[in-house]
Every structure is written in C-alpha cells, then in structure tokens.
Design a protein around this nucleic acid. Sequence first.
DNA 1: GTGATAACTTTACAGTGTTAAATTACCCGG
DNA 2: CCGGGTAATTTAACACTGTAAAGTTATCAC
Lengths: 226, 226
Amino acid sequence: MSNDPLSPADPPARRRLSADERRSQILATARRLFVEEGVENVSMRRIAALAGVTPTLIYHHFADKESLLLAVCQNFFRGLIDASEAAMAAVPETEVPFGRLRRLMEGYVEFGLANPDVYRLVFMTKLAGLKREKMPSGHRPHPAEPALPEDQGFGLRAFGLLEGEIRRLIESGHLRQDDACAMAEVVWATGHGIVSLLITHGDFQWTPVDRLISLSIDTILSGIAR
Amino acid sequence: MSNDPLSPADPPARRRLSADERRSQILATARRLFVEEGVENVSMRRIAALAGVTPTLIYHHFADKESLLLAVCQNFFRGLIDASEAAMAAVPETEVPFGRLRRLMEGYVEFGLANPDVYRLVFMTKLAGLKREKMPSGHRPHPAEPALPEDQGFGLRAFGLLEGEIRRLIESGHLRQDDACAMAEVVWATGHGIVSLLITHGDFQWTPVDRLISLSIDTILSGIAR
DNA sequence: GTGATAACTTTACAGTGTTAAATTACCCGG
DNA sequence: CCGGGTAATTTAACACTGTAAAGTTATCAC
C-alpha cells in the first residue's frame, strides 16, 4: 500500500547533475510515465515534477516532447534487437527449417505485447512531422541528438535480422518466392498485424490470444513455404 | 488558386439551424479537418470557426472531441461495409474458390489506404477511455448518442461479411482449418497489418506498394488453403 | 579565490479542451 | 399579431497544455 506509484524518483539526492545523468534520469522518468499512463496523458510538467526538475530544463536536453518520445523509442528498438537475437540463438540452425523464423515471430509478438505503449509509439504513430532542424533558438542547444538517423539505424538492424533468416530459407530452397526483402516485409506485416490488432482491440471477444497468435504464425509460414 | 482550403463552409447562409442540420454540418466540418490535417492538429476552436459557430455549441451536439471522432468513425464503417458488399457482388460465387475472398481483401486494403486518417482513428487509436456517461451536466444534453453500441454494430457487421465468406470456403472444403471466426481474425490481421504498416511507414524504401499488397494476399490465401 | 561555463529557474505567452451562465432567435397558442 | 417558452447559440472563464527568453546559481579549472 505504500506505493502511490508516482513520487519523485530519487528524493533530493543530488541537486545538480551532469548533463548525461540528467538526460538519462529525465528519459527514465518519461518512459515510465509514458508507458504507465499513455503518452498523451502525460504532460511535460508532470515529467518534470516527477523528475524533481523544472519543465524548462527538459528542453535543454530534448528538443520537445516528440524528441523525448523518440529517445524512448530507441530503447525499444534495442530491446527488440536483443529479444530477436536471443530468439535466433535459442534455436540451432540444424533444427526443422522454419524453427528459427517461427521463434523470431513469436519473439516479436511477445515483445510487442509486453510493451504495448512503446510499440504503439514506434509503429502506430505518425510521429512524422520529422521536425527536422527545429531545435530551440535560445541558449546552447542539445548535444548531438541524431534525431532520426540513429533510430532508423536500430530499426533497420532489427529488420535485417528477419530478412537474414528469410534469405537463409530462400537459399536452402524452402520458400516459394525468392525476393527476400519483399518476403520479409510480408512476414513483418503479419506479425505487426497481430500485435497492433491485439493492442487496440484486445478487449472485445476474439479467439484466445495465444491461439490467434499461433494460428496466424502457422498460416503465414505455410503460406510462404514452397 | 482561389481555394485556400479552409474557409467557412456556407458563408452566413442560414444563421439558426435545426439541431439535426447543425449536427451534420459540424460533423462534416470535423471530418474534413480531421482527415485533411490529422486529429490532433485540429482544435475544437478551429472546427467551430470553420463551421461558422462557437466552440461551445459543438458541446451541445457532441459530448466531447472523442465523441465527435466516434461519429466520424461510424461513417467510415458504413463506407467499409458498402465497399465490401460491392466487392462481394462483383465476383460471382461460381468463380474460382478464393476469388471473392481475394477481392474482399483487396477492397479492404484499398479502402483503408484511401482513408488513412480515419482508418488510423478507427483501428489504430486507443479511443478506449470509453467515457461512458460523461455527458456535460449543464443544459439539455445531446439526443441519444448511442456512443459505442451503434458503431460496434457497424464494425461487427463488416467483420461478419468476412467471416461469412470464410465460412463458405470452409463448408466447400477449401480451408485447412475449420474455425471460421478464428480464421477470419487471422485474415483480418493480415489485411490490417498491410494497411497499418503502409499508413505509418509508407514513406521509406519498401517493395512497391502494389506488389507488397498482392504478395501478402497471395501468401495468406495460400496459407489458409487446404 | 576568481571567472567562465554548464545547469538550472522564473516568468510568461499563446493555445488547448471544457463548462456555467447568460442571451438570443424562433415557433406556437392565445 | 404578439407574448411566452424553449431550443439554439454565445460570452466569459477555468484549468490546463507545450514552449520560449531571459535571468540565476552552482560547480570546476586555474
């Protein structure tokens, strides 16, 4: 009962932090709030308060709310990549041909459903204005902040894992189509379809979640198989 | 060049309108703005201004911004149902077995891509608070406003079309699974995956859209086929 | 110690969704 | 035809949002 879930993270431990420390602290606070309450229910003021800091300070570390979001997204991608690599490593190549791909898809879906809010952020939100070079004018601006490139990097790397596995299946003659990139997109679209459907329409009726997932994966795998 | 796209719809034609007329007029204005500029870039004040009306008046016809949105969604479902029925009617039953289902999926994807913003609204947005009985307290409140039930009705009806076709395929022994509802969900998830992926990540690299779509549909159809 | 500089606040603005209370314009019975 | 009653609409305000300019303070190198 002692946890009203929202109280200043570290009670006035240190007052002045290094830029990096502050940045991570703000980021952590924001991530927590975003995930717990949904992005649009969280104001910069609340993030600031919970981080024990002034709203304006956030703008010295992040260009605006969207950038803050974006930074959270990058963590998401790193997590996804880790999960994917773990999934791949868990199934030896010598296994039944589609074992690794299946595990990869399962991992993707699990990961998405385990982080629904960030998933929505990353994959279901426009987030598109792209805000290129909008940095605040006054004061010294934020350090580096690669904005898009970096996280595209992470995203592409995650996609690359999928594409690689597909390519392997093509080379061993197991697929009916030989355009690895296109097939990877098809497979991804399927995984994304499941996750995003369950995220926004999880409440309702529906076939039991586990069954729907495995049915979908079975179906798509048998659809791409030669 | 005479069209700065946003000017009062009917310049002070009639001043006082009947409740129904006003409701539709506001709805039309909102729909236009939502679709043209994205929901969160449109304020109640702007809708009101464009409709030649006061912000407050909107709240006498709709509970809040979300309800306004919801009303727009219902139109979307009606459109989807029409498109689906047209698709079904266009392919005679005597055709090749999967002809109608394929056309149905194509129709779904086309429709989604033709109305990306409303699609996002309906299928990719939480929209979940559900706001049950939140109506404003003052004044006479809005007429009826079935809130959720009605539009779930439309949504279910659309889903029913898909499920029906699947059921037909099961009965004629063309599918490898016989759970019509589950298979319909699997198929829907695929369609949704394509649409939502293209909506949020249409800009990028990707296989040409048309190819990705037909490849996906081919794949899922051959995945469910016996 | 003293300054430069990085970290942080104060204060303010313009805009948002929303509502209570007041005001109009219209219609209908006398 | 005209005076209420009521439905349609507005005025004014609240509590909030993201964001910015300018000012203040702590810390660290010398």
